[in-house]
Amino acid sequence: MAASKEELIEKLYECVVEMEDEDVVDVCNEYLDAGYNAYDGIMDGLVAGMNKASELYDEEEYFVTDVLLCSDALYAGLEILRPHLDADESMGEAKKVVIGVVEGDTHDIGKNLVKIMLETAGFEMYDLGRDVPLDAFVEKAKEVDADIVAMSTLMTTTMSGMGTVIEKLQEAGIRDRVKVMVGGSPISRKFADEIGAEGYSANAVEAVAVAKELVGLE
């Protein structure tokens, strides 16, 4: 007997939580073949699984490696299900985030985790990568009409670049339209306040709540 929609959604959820980036593809195909709705599979299966993964990360049950592997499963599943979304079933009017690691720093694991978490939470992400020239944050924010600019760094030498980006947003005349959030191990709430960033989060899970609050989603 064919599996019910609920059973398959549960399987999708488990594939993400259990980091099964190959099995998830089979389950997605089975789910589509049975004619079930792609949007529900994404939201109640894959995304719910990723949210569980971030909960486990928050509880120190999962570590960076686990979250990376869960996200591999998430993305593998999304690739199958996304093309089957109905036109009106996009994730709604998503808030846009420009994210990157500031110039001079090539460590991007933290940034990648934040990107995954925000993407899972429904934000539209524009990832500039690592070692990003400061002007690029401003240009991209203008180009896509971003709601948030998110910057990260691991290096103390590059922290001051974050303040420079905020000044540049001001000069470009878009400071009042965009919120700034910062993170990375040397960054503190105090530093965020000093440079005038509205948001600071100590880790990738907290970043979701901070971002939502900044754009008035919660």
């Binding site: 960076v64 490696t65 990376l68 694991i109």
Partner: peptide, 8 residues
């Protein structure tokens, strides 16, 4: 990130 994935 590749090192971390590969370790699993």
């Amino acid at each position: 990130d590749k090192l971390l994935r590969a370790k699993r």
